[in-house]
Design a binder for these strands. Structure first.
Lengths: 285, 285
DNA sequence: GTTCCGCATGAATCGATAG
DNA sequence: ACTATCGATTCATGCGGAA
């Protein structure tokens, strides 16, 4: 367990070989996109991206628990006036590798990167690809319920007579609506579109996503005491969030600079979280 | 030109063979999704879907003008606990066929189908795939700029609170909402996420998509007098909208019933549009 | 005219049951 | 084993009638 709650320096494809099988409950990562982050990853070319990634996702598959989930935040870049196809090719190849492509969430970025081009609009969304090893996996939907929409808020305050009894539907495939069940309920389940702002304040790290994003998925797919891996930890957001939520983390990055930054951020949060967490493993950063 | 402003009955793969090359300025369509609409289309199986579609998109490619755009509204279904891959395979195959995959817009449906399952949330988005024949194509961005209305000013005053918890569902017919950027401006360009409700309570016809959806893309990619093709016209929404916007339309459907419905709807709107439209070609429905 | 309320209805998905 | 059908679940919207 000496890898738990640590930020490890190196290429995740190699580092992960030292971890045992099925020791990770969830993987959340935002890998360097093709031809981005040239300084730190050498700018993998779109044409080589799929092979580059597959060599690492093979290790992800091995270390992930059978009921665990891999959430991959990615967006293909524009090349030559076209959306590049390496992401959708990656999906097909990962299925060959043994992954199930369970779902594709959309991250709708509220304040996306500004700009104007003659032939396209600003790109305000990214993919969050959900992969699993089995059809049955851990999912804690109640943890991410959202406030109910306008419909019920107004109506439920004064519930009417007919709403109280279930009106059995006689229409072909109709739904019976039992409104009375909603009394006292102020939350509903979300959809597969998550709508969050990007973080604009930090200019030190490039591929930064808001804490809300990993937070949402960590709450959805893990319990307290589980272990979350981010093989491209970058500035450390996934580890910080995992720690805040009482999960163990494992962070890996090829850049020494990023590792240092991530370690600083998690150490800062640690002290107040060491008390009363079952399954939380002590470890330096 | 005897095909212009008509609803044609038959399989679009065959019907289109009688049209000349490059006679269409834009194609907007929502084809039958795999294994859906069994009554009218016979429910194409996911495994056969790509080949089925490619036989038709070959004709789309031929009749589309070099500066024209093809917008394809589609979403893959879940099969065996996984998102099926036929849509992303189709993208790859259409590129082999000669199409450029220029962009992928997201249609975020405000009111998606209800339901609850242990392993997934409700699906509230669909793909709007943009294909072109050339890098240079017609695009009229100013036509879809979003004016800052009174409601926007209200929103700006108390921004961060409601925007954080729940997505902006009660915003008027808003697409590309980027509220913070609207300060001090009259109009802004939208993004590649469009946010509209499905129309659910029209008793006479149940359109798969709201009129706002084709309307937005027709404004974006055509001018008055251009010709818009929908090879799977269904209840006729694309044709109705094209007509309203002063564009010519060509609608095709394999179902006689849908053709009749579409003809009725376009005839109804026609009389007030015949005046003062350059390039508008008279023709029955 | 407003606002409020009843109601129908969606390109859905899962699991169990039946041929 | 593999496909076809059926029942159950659930939330936002707009229309139309009522207050």
């Amino acid at each position: 367990m000496e890898f738990v709650n640590k930020i490890l320096h190196g290429d995740c494809g190699e580092i992960l070989q030292s971890l045992p099988d099925e020791c990770i409950d969830m993987i959340f990562t935002s890998p360097p996109y093709a031809d981005q982050r040239k300084r730190t990853y050498g700018g993998i070319k779109p044409a080589e991206y799929v092979e580059w990634f597959l060599a690492r996702s093979e290790q992800f598959l091995r270390v992930l628990s059978p009921t665990g989930t891999f959430v991959l935040n990615i967006k293909e870049r524009v090349a030559n006036g076209e959306r590049h196809t390496y992401v959708i090719e990656l999906i097909l190849r990962m299925r060959d590798q043994g992954w199930l492509w369970t779902e594709e969430f959309i991250w709708h970025k509220k304040n996306c990167y500004p700009g104007k081009w003659p032939n396209r609009f600003r790109d305000s969304w990214e993919r969050l690809l959900q992969f699993n090893k089995q059809r049955k996996f851990n999912m804690y939907q109640e943890a991410v319920m959202v406030p109910v929409g306008g419909w019920a808020r107004d109506r439920l305050s004064n519930l009417s007579e007919t709403d109280r009894s279930r009106d059995e539907s006689r229409v072909g495939s109709g739904f019976g609506k039992n409104v009375s069940r909603w009394v006292g309920r102020d939350k509903v389940y979300p959809t597969n579109v998550v709508h969050m702002a990007t973080e604009c304040s930090n200019r030190n790290h490039s591929a930064a996503f808001p804490e809300d994003l990993p937070s949402w998925f960590i709450n959805l797919f893990t319990e307290s005491g589980d272990t979350v891996l981010d093989p491209f930890i970058g500035s450390g957001t996934t580890a910080v969030v995992a720690q805040k939520l009482g999960r163990n983390y494992v962070g890996i990055d090829i850049s020494q600079e990023f590792c240092d930054m991530a370690r600083e951020r998690v150490v800062w949060v640690m002290p107040r979280l060491l008390e009363g967490r079952e399954g939380y493993v002590e470890g330096g950063s």
